[in-house]
Design a protein around this nucleic acid. Structure first.
Length: 510
RNA sequence: GGUAACGUGACCGAGUGGCUAGGUAGAGGUCUGCAAAACCUCCUACGGCGGUUCGAAUCCGCCCGUUACCUCCA
């Protein structure tokens, strides 16, 4: 079954085929680095991280580009709108680039802790002024932009008159946009049409971040950087462009117009993917509601909106339990449930290490999943296990349906656990199928879903030692001692499991 | 105000015109010195009101609620 993805551009699921296999070009709109990333900011990177991981699992060579917006993102469209970076810098008496660097560092750290692989290219808008000026010049040469008082605006009505489809991505018609545009906004008088948007803005005297251009000193419009940098690193036409639903209009709409209006006309990406938004306790995150939570705040528990801290992996797993195109609501209850589920999956990895480790080097006969059995009747236990192991991949193929994939991984884990309690059934499955299914589980949990163990105070060795004492005490029937050891470990989040075959430990799921 | 989307059991969330989602929580059981974990079993819902249909939670309409975009926002 081939990978299908929902394309916002066509409003349907389409079979994904790269333009130039095995290469895949993926662009994701990155952060504007003027403050700490909040919980909602994490969803897109996690979604597209799983997509990248899955594409790589499928054998594609992915070039993953995620930009850093450090210039041009204004507080509003009005001329008086301040650059977000400059505003933050002024408030703290810092250089704008100092602010950008600080929050870029903090962003990278947060992304790494969330298990998001770093992008292959992480271009900064301020480092690509030349490319942005060049693109603006191209659009001017095409006659789809005009200069006004040192600023350059994209001419939306003319673009559409010449066959452009501004509004296609977001399903809007320009006339409706015009009707709904607030005309009282300052700076509109330079525009020929309220729907026009800035490619290049003239810098006011007090504006700090400014560059020389053919139109005077100024700075690039926010939408321009993604067009310029995606073209530079992925080509005029590439495979996938991602971002949050809120960026669909106007940001991505403008990107498409800019791409089409250049000397290399193309919408840019063939697939436009949009992840849905996050609410906290049923409401949009906002400072006034007191439910605005940044990533560092959640990880440290320094927020009144939650009763305790939650780890990055808990948050990652929480997001994966919902489909990326559905809204998701975050709460204490939901996070606690996610934490337990996440730990259960990780305990599964440890179980498999034990099960497959017990197999030794003996190899069994090959069994293939999804092989049509020659004879009718119920599939063999080995076949059943392999079928379970194949299911999660099929769900990922279906528009990256991580919740169904996760559910199928839990089904697989349950089968492993059942087998672990029943040696006869385990023997019936055989080593080959067990190894293959275990490999699939590890691939899914670690490589595709990107879940990993989070550092804990206790090392494997230390626990082994402690378990030795535990075993001794138990053999001596010194139950006071036994209970003492168990209590001590439990306070560290570790529980002891007395099994028929020996003593083991696992993470407490409390 | 305009335009979209969503509303599922105690909680988070899949999914679908008739067939078990899954996780968490809860109940009973197996195992166990007691537990925990694991396993087995149970609880099993689709905002409200109409309509289409043999049959709808799934399609249509209206209402209510939430969210998003229209204005910076993942």
């Amino acid at each position: 079954m081939p990978l299908t993805l929902y394309n916002t551009l066509t409003r349907q699921k389409e079979t994904f085929e790269p333009l130039h296999p095995p290469q895949v070009g993926l662009y994701l709109c990155g952060p504007t680095v003027y403050n700490d990333a909040h919980l909602g900011n994490a969803r897109g990177p996690i979604v597209f991280d799983v997509l990248t991981r899955y594409l790589r699992h499928l054998g594609y060579q992915v070039r993953y580009v995620r930009n850093i917006t450090d210039v041009g993102h204004l507080e509003s469209d009005a001329d008086t709108g301040e650059d977000k970076l400059e505003k933050a810098a002024k408030a703290k008496k810092l250089e704008p680039m100092q602010v950008a660097q600080h929050y870029t560092n903090s962003y990278r750290q947060a992304m790494a802790s969330l298990g998001c692989l770093p992008p292959d290219i992480e271009p900064q808008a301020s480092g690509h002024i030349t490319e942005q000026i060049a693109l603006t010049a191209e659009i001017l040469e095409r006659g789809l932009a005009y200069e006004a008082n040192g600023s350059v605006y994209f001419d939306v009505p003319k673009y559409n008159a010449e066959g452009g489809q501004y509004g296609r991505l977001s399903g809007r018609v320009v006339e409706e946009l015009l009707a709904g545009t607030r005309t009282e906004l300052a700076g509109q008088e330079e525009k020929r049409s309220p729907a026009d948007f800035a490619l290049w803005k003239k810098a006011s005297p007090q504006h700090i971040m400014r560059w020389p251009s053919p139109w005077g000193e100024g700075f690039p419009g926010w939408h321009l950087e993604c067009s310029a940098m995606s073209r530079k690193y992925l080509g005029a036409e590439f495979d996938i462009h991602g971002g949050g639903l809120d960026l669909m209009f106007p940001h991505h709409e403008c990107e498409i117009a800019q791409n089409e209006g250049s000397h290399t006309p193309s919408p840019g990406a063939r697939f436009w993917l949009h992840n849905n938004m996050l609410t906290v306790n049923g409401a949009k995150m906002s400072k006034s509601l007191g439910n605005f939570i940044t990533l560092p705040q959640m990880f440290s528990g320094q927020t009144s909106a939650l009763s305790q801290s939650y780890s990055p992996m808990t948050l990652r797993f929480f997001f994966l339990q919902a489909h990326y195109r559905s809204p998701i609501d975050l709460s204490d209850d939901a996070l606690q449930a996610a934490r337990k589920g996440y730990r259960k999956l990780l305990n599964g990895l440890r179980l498999l290490d034990k099960l497959t480790g017990d197999l030794g080097e003996v190899s069994g006969e090959e069994v293939k999943a999804e092989e049509t059995p020659a004879k009718p009747g119920p599939p063999s236990p080995a076949q059943q296990l392999l079928n379970l192991a194949a299911k999660p991949f099929a769900f990922l193929d279906d528009d990256l349906n991580t919740p169904r994939a996760v559910a199928a991984v839990f089904d697989l884990l349950k089968r492993f656990n059942t087998l672990a309690t029943n040696p006869a059934a385990l023997a019936e499955v055989g080593p080959a199928a067990l190894r293959e299914a275990a490999a699939a589980y590890r691939t899914l949990v670690q490589d595709v879903l990107g879940l990993r163990d989070e550092p804990r105070a206790n090392t494997e060795d230390l626990l082994g030692l402690t378990l030795g004492f535990y075993q001794e005490a138990k053999e001596a029937k010194a139950y006071d001692k036994v209970d003492q050891i168990r209590a001590a470990l439990k306070s560290q989040g570790i529980v002891i499991k007395d099994t028929k075959t020996g003593v083991e430990w696992a993470y407490s799921e409390e």
